[in-house]
Simulated scan of single mutants.
Amino acid sequence: MSKTSFRPLHDRVVVRRVDMEEKTAGGIIIPDTAKEKPQEGVVLAAGPGARDEHGKLTALDVKAGDRVLFGKWSGTEVKLDGEDVLIMKESDIMGVLA
């Protein structure tokens, strides 16, 4: 099976969630049923940018490979090539982790 070619439009980005630790700092193991969905991910693809009121293209601040933080309810979950990813606007991203 071949990989699907997907290119986000405008100011949208494709993000794959990063799994969080299954153990707390105190050593308590968190069961799957009690875990929250991670709010951290890696940008897989980014659109070319949004257009301003004059029609000029404004490039995005994020790029493929960036590790980002986003809101708990941000984006739309979709399946691409059997992998669960999120498609969201760049404005849903709170910041890039260094």
Rank of each mutant, 00 (worst) to 15 (best):
A34I: 06
V96P: 04
V68S: 01
S74T: 08
P38V: 06
L86F: 09
I28Q: 12
K56H: 15
A98W: 09
D81H: 04
H10M: 14
G95K: 04
S74I: 00
L57H: 08
H10C: 10
T76Q: 14
L9S: 06
P48E: 11
M88V: 01
D19M: 08
S91K: 14
P48L: 09
A25Y: 09
S2M: 13
W73I: 04
E36K: 12
E77G: 05
L44V: 00
G71D: 11
R7D: 15
L97T: 08
G26T: 13
A98H: 11
S91D: 15
G55M: 14
Q39T: 10
M1G: 07
G41A: 04
E53G: 07
A25S: 14
D52E: 04
K72F: 04
V15D: 01
A25C: 07
H54I: 05
L60H: 00
D92H: 02
A46R: 02
K89R: 14
F6A: 05
K56C: 08
K3Q: 12
A45P: 06
S5R: 12
M88Q: 06
G26L: 13
G26I: 08
D19K: 14
H54P: 05
E90K: 05
R51W: 11
T24Q: 09
T24G: 10
K37W: 08
E21T: 12
D11T: 00
K63S: 10
K56R: 13
G71T: 05
G26Q: 15
V96L: 08
G27T: 00
A34E: 14
S2V: 10
K89E: 09
G65T: 06
D19L: 09
I30R: 04
M1K: 05
D81F: 03
R12F: 11
V78F: 03
V78I: 15
G41S: 02
A59W: 08
V85N: 00
D81K: 04
